[in-house]
Amino acid sequence: MQIEIILNGKKVSLDVKNNELLADTLRNYGVFSIRKGCDTTCCGLCTIWVEEKPVLSCAMLSVRADGKTITTMEGLQREAEEFAQVLVAEGSEQCGFCSPGFILTVLAMKRELKNPTQEEIVHYLTGNLCRCTGYLGQLRAIKKYLGVA
């Protein structure tokens, strides 16, 4: 089936199979920031934005993306770099494999929550697993980035 999406601000036409998942479609298209980490829709690595909302691209059928606005890290480079600077200064990017999904969720949170508390930050990001950092350095970076206590 032919779908048309707005990918990072540009109209893109893609030929997809009915059982194709958006994570695969986009990676095959060359969107390498999308990583698959679990195959069971629970690790957060493949998070992208669909209509500005963070969703698991590995749980979404590509056919359902037709007509939707999709944002990946490639489309948010400047903002991602701003946060990544803080994250890297904290040393908490570590292996980096989960970073794109994590950072997209952080940036979505920034839009959705005003001055979030630590509890709200942790709640918003619970679906983003990380095996390297132990999460605390990420939290320090987020607080610095958002300027919250």
Binding site: C42, V55, L56, A59, T105, T126, G127
Partner: peptide, 13 residues
Amino acid sequence: VKNIIGIQFRNIV
């Protein structure tokens, strides 16, 4: 529903 996996999941199901 708060503890069901994560918001990326809850934004889909």
